[in-house]
């Protein structure tokens, strides 16, 4: 079996202005974020997820998810 590397362990660079980088560094100083990269990734994921949920029938889907989740939990599938 070939040993390939996970793309999870690979990152690509995105350029942001240095003053913004410094500001983010200050901004996350006392938060849980361990690096500017972690913070920027988190923010971008939020934006992407938000636009995805806007484009679907989010509220009924959420209610459906809740019901299915409860059943799966009771069956021990979410242990």
């Amino acid at each position: 079996m070939p040993k390939t590397k996970s793309r999870k362990g690979k990152f690509t660079s995105v350029s942001i202005p240095i003053p913004l980088f410094r500001k983010i560094e200050e901004h996350i100083a006392d938060t849980g974020f361990t690096s500017v990269s972690s913070y920027v990734t988190y923010i971008l994921r939020e934006i992407v997820a938000e636009s995805a949920s806007e484009s679907s029938s989010a509220s009924s889907a959420k209610e459906d998810q809740k019901k299915v989740k409860e059943r799966l939990r009771a069956l021990g599938y979410l242990d």
């Binding site: 996970s6 362990g9 690979k10 990152f11 849980g32 972690s38 990734t41 599938y77």
Partner: peptide, 25 residues
């Protein structure tokens, strides 16, 4: 579950990651 899914707390990928990409593999 029927199998365990193991997640590594990778810096830059997770919010409070503590394994650096260099040491991930």
């Amino acid at each position: 579950g029927y199998y365990a899914r193991i997640f590594i707390n990778l810096e830059g990928y997770e919010r409070e990651g503590c394994i650096s990409p260099d040491e991930y593999e």
